[in-house]
Write a protein that binds this DNA or RNA. Sequence first.
DNA 1: AGCAGATTGTTAATTAACTTGACAAACTCA
DNA 2: TGAGTTTGTCAAGTTAATTAACAATCTGCT
Lengths: 411, 411
Amino acid sequence: MTFYHRLPLNANVKYVNKHTALDLILFAPEGLSRVELARQIGLTRAAMTQIVNDLLASGTIHEIESSNSKSGRPPIILEINPQGGHIVGIDIGATHVNLVVTDFSGRVLDEVEIPFNVKEPPIQCLDQVDRLFRETLAKMNLKLDDIEAIGVGVPGPVDTKAGMVIAPPIMPGWDRFPIRETLEKRWGCPIALANDAELGALGEWAYGAARGEKNIAYIKVGTGIGAGLLLDGQIYHGISGAAGEIGHLTMIENGPICNCGNAGCLETLAGGMAIARQAQEAVRKGQRTMLSEITPIEAITTRDVSAIARRGDRVAQQIIVQAGRYLGIAIAGMVNLFNPTMIVFGGGVAQIGDLFLQPIRDEVQKRSLPAAVRTLRIQTAVLRRRSSSMGAVVLALSMALHKLAEAKERR
Amino acid sequence: MTFYHRLPLNANVKYVNKHTALDLILFAPEGLSRVELARQIGLTRAAMTQIVNDLLASGTIHEIESSNSKSGRPPIILEINPQGGHIVGIDIGATHVNLVVTDFSGRVLDEVEIPFNVKEPPIQCLDQVDRLFRETLAKMNLKLDDIEAIGVGVPGPVDTKAGMVIAPPIMPGWDRFPIRETLEKRWGCPIALANDAELGALGEWAYGAARGEKNIAYIKVGTGIGAGLLLDGQIYHGISGAAGEIGHLTMIENGPICNCGNAGCLETLAGGMAIARQAQEAVRKGQRTMLSEITPIEAITTRDVSAIARRGDRVAQQIIVQAGRYLGIAIAGMVNLFNPTMIVFGGGVAQIGDLFLQPIRDEVQKRSLPAAVRTLRIQTAVLRRRSSSMGAVVLALSMALHKLAEAKERR
DNA sequence: AGCAGATTGTTAATTAACTTGACAAACTCA
DNA sequence: TGAGTTTGTCAAGTTAATTAACAATCTGCT
């Protein structure tokens, strides 16, 4: 069924069509011609000429030559004008901050990443992010004025309107802290705040493994586990921004105790924390493994397990495969519920690669509806550590572009 | 983020606004005035007068007087014209067929239900539905011509465009059988085909427990278990129509064998089949219970367990509570994933009531994110056995109305 | 080279849908 | 009874789209 999409309030037709065209250009990797735009939106070429002229006049887009044509006049390709300014994407993770600076075409001009601890007080944390941001700008000889918009991802449920996180499990000190307001005041620049997994989905959809896919899920497997959902090219947020919180699905009714208070949560079995803990337990039990070379035992990290597994250690491999299996069961459930075209795995643990991914694929293959599996692809993120910060760029860029397209429209 | 909704192809603005207005009137329980419509769509009153005149001229809607006004001229309330014709909604379940005939305002004029076996060949099944349909028309002194549209729900993943089911687990004989084509040929009337759980969601949203909710899930707990999702007022279908297939979520890794081939599926623990099976096992084990009064043991049904539980039998109660608990765990996962505003339980087993619902609520409360639980309501379907067939009516009615609004528009 | 055929993009005239602003209609309240 | 308020309509003006013709620029063929 298609109930007709409601136009935004104060529906101005040209407004809608112009911005639709802008979005289409933004997300077409190779650019679009006027004719192609007209076809996709359902307008005539004549109308599209008008709209495109508007966008050109505002400097939002520009024309580039093209040579590939089978017959007839070659189309003039339209692209976002990269000279429009700079965009910054910031991914605030549990244990790191990743920051990228791009131009308006999404090309990464610089990237930095620092270790970080989200459990510290928000003001202190944001100070640290502020320093990183300003240092990077200085290094690039950029001023605050050169930045048109900034996207920020955080690892918790976001209230987009309020610009804050609500009751976040892994960053309780941030509950209702006015993140967007604080940063906007500091940087004097429009800020878009979103959940990091949602941004990962958006990033991989716009620039990564999931280009052109219709319904995707991005699974961030780091210290914790979260999912970002993109339905029909839109972030699906849920009613209170808590959609995609798969880390606390109950996998074993009386399994290991989770710090959320329940038992047998997915995170206690498949996250980075779970892998490290199981490795430490294996050593304590005295199993024959290279993991025991690391001292003290508490220092064993997921990265160690991954490295040692790659060197052929059976115990380490077994831990990773088992984690993958549990994650696979959860993902299989998600596939039955969402029936997406693609699932992209990102975050630190996902970097382990096929050793981790294959048991996931196996379980999904085994446990999901054949109809759903047939149309499904499962892959790792191609933007790697940048998935979320590039998603933040997309969000900020979209914001900046639509503003630019309006701003100069006064005729 | 809001990427601007794309208008349908051949975007005719008036077309969109007219149909948006029509949908708003259709789903406003008490009707709407021109001013209210204008406010919701974002047009002026003058423009709305034009659009409403169009709809009035086509006979799609009609005006009714209203008296409630605080001050100023009382608004003229607009409603769907019930005289537009008749709509039929048919819910083809695994073990029954429910058929309702309504007028254009969704008022039920007649309802019939017969036992049924979906495992028999599709042609035979559709013959049976055809007979039921024609008998009911005859009884009501209606002719085929009086029916403007028919909605049909089936218990499997539907390819809406093709009008058939794809690889359905519980009705394998129907795979790719041209259901819509067959019925359209027989009845010479537009048919809308959809999944029964999706229709349940739609029905409860339009006329039942979930009116005005934004994101809802309808859980059909009958012989099997399936979910229908309504996200932002639209059926969420997934890419291959397999969204919401929660019956085969893995709940216990090495649990009871399911007829889908896996082990520990939700359906083996919480569906109608599971409840009956466990009751039979309890009697075989010689537990002290009223269930043992039923002979032969194989004849014990879910309905028996429900009835005996209501009379205070501990064993029967325990079976139902345990089923509710498992379902609750699955639903808790779904809540973390979807973050809906409401979950509505329908289907035969859900009719048990609070004995079944309370353990579900408890588990969800315990296992889902607090942010998601706070905004969530869990209830039983108010349309009872009619949820899905009323959803089919909504689908068919929407189809018929939008056609009617266009048909007479030639000026 | 030169022309047919194809496709893209533009222009001018026309049409359709919406807005503006004024006003009539129908109620409540003092 | 009249002031205040809200709904609905009307006529004129505005804007964004369509239609239809044409210019521009390529490929392919002879």
